[in-house]
Every structure is written in structure tokens, then in C-alpha cells.
Amino acid sequence: MADMRTFVRRFLLVFAFFLSAATGCAEAQVAPSPKIGISGQSVFVYSFLDLFPKSYTPPVTDQIVNDLGVALKYSGVDPTIREFRKSNVGNSYPFPKTLPIGTVTLNPPIEAMILEDYIAEKERNTKYRLIIFPTMFKSDGPWRFYDISWTLISIDSGMPIWNYTYHGSHMSILRNSENKVKRSRKIVDAAVEEMKKAGII
């Protein structure tokens, strides 16, 4: 397990670089990568969108998980999707009582969440992890702007092989009445399209 912890920490250092780059970019970026396809492969997806329920409400995150699972399966991928708050690690994470819009200062234990599924990944002979992480929030009048980083990692090498940043917006007054299907489809469809462009699926 010690070797696994070292491996995950190395991956997190590289992943942190991509998150930093994604936070500062103005347009969607796709990291240069070889044409590596994940169709026919088991992929563990780790979503951290539920860190911020004020920006991604539970109905929206549930819809994203459902739509992403359907899209990946349609492309021949065998996905296992984990959400942070629904994991054992997330259940015990000391969230602040309030999470104001605009904060990206939380430091969730990504390593611990991945280690939680280490045996399950091995049992499914999983070769790739897809990390979905919110990297930016900004309010401007009635509008909220946000970025979501999508990073595909090779478990064998511990290196990211594909990275994409989704730039989205929605009106804050629609938080409790927004069309969850429409918002989810915009986010998922954009990411899937970028995967197809990169030859990932």
C-alpha cells in the first residue's frame, strides 16, 4: 500500500498542475496526448462537483452522473462513477457550514478517495481514471460563471493523457428551478465531444 500511496501522490502533483493551468485559462484547453482510446476499457470516474451544492445542486450532479454514465456506455466504456460526498471519505469530510459562491479553497482528500477504491479498481482491471473537478466560480450580477476540469489519467503511468476545461454559466435565480437535464446535457455533451476529437472515445 505504501507504493500505491507514493504513486497516487505523484499523480496528484501532476493533476494539481493541470488544475492550476485550467483555473487561469480563458478558453477550453486540451492537453497534447497520444491517441489513446478508452472504449472497451473499465474507467473509474471521480466527480468532485458535489463539493459546491450552491453551484451544482444535487439534482444537477445526479443528472450529470446519469448522463455521463449513459454517454460513456454508449461509446463502449465500462464506467464506475464515484461522487465525493457519497464516498466514505466525503461523508466524514469537515465541510464548512457555509460555502460562499466564488470559493475554490477547499482541499478535499483526493488521494484518500482514490485509495478507497484501489481494490475495486484492481478487481475490474481498470486502466484509467477520469477526474472531474470544479476549478473556478465567479459571480457577475445575476450570472454565475464556472469552470470544470476533466482529466483522464493512465493508472499504469500515473500521468494525465487528456485534459479539458469546460466554461459554463447560469443565472443564480434559477438555482432551485433550473432545467437540470438541459444544464447536464450541455456539460456532458461538450466533454464527450472533446473526447471524440482527441480520439479518447
Rank of each mutant, 00 (worst) to 15 (best):
T6Y: 00
F7W: 07
F7Y: 03
R9T: 12
F11S: 14
F11A: 12
L12F: 00
F15L: 14
A16E: 13
L19R: 08
L19Y: 03
S20H: 12
A26P: 05
A26Y: 13
E27R: 14
V30S: 14
A31I: 13
P32R: 02
P34S: 15
P34R: 15
I36V: 15
V43T: 06
S47F: 10
L51K: 00
F52I: 01
P53Q: 01
P53I: 01
K54C: 07
S55A: 09
S55H: 07
Y56K: 02
P58D: 01
N66F: 10
D67N: 12
A71T: 07
Y74D: 13
V77S: 05
V77Q: 09
D78R: 15
P79L: 05
I81N: 04
R85Y: 01
R85T: 11
K86P: 07
S87Y: 01
V89T: 08
S92V: 13
S92Q: 12
Y93K: 05
F95M: 08
K97P: 04
T98I: 13
L99F: 07
P100D: 03
I101N: 03
G102I: 01
G102K: 00
T103A: 03
T103D: 02
T105A: 00
N107Y: 01
P109W: 02
I110K: 02
A112H: 00
D117K: 08
I119C: 08
E121T: 09
E121A: 04
N125W: 10
K127G: 14
I131Y: 01
I131N: 05
T135F: 00
T135P: 04
M136A: 08
F137H: 14
S139C: 09
S139T: 13
G141S: 03
P142F: 08
F145G: 02
F145Y: 15
W150H: 13
T151I: 11
L152Y: 00
S154N: 11
S154E: 11
S157M: 08
I161V: 15
N163V: 12
N176E: 12
N176H: 12
S177Y: 07
E178M: 08
K180I: 11
V181D: 12
V181I: 12
V181N: 13
R183W: 10
R185N: 15
V188P: 01
A191K: 07
E194I: 10
M195R: 10
K197F: 07
G199F: 08
I201P: 03
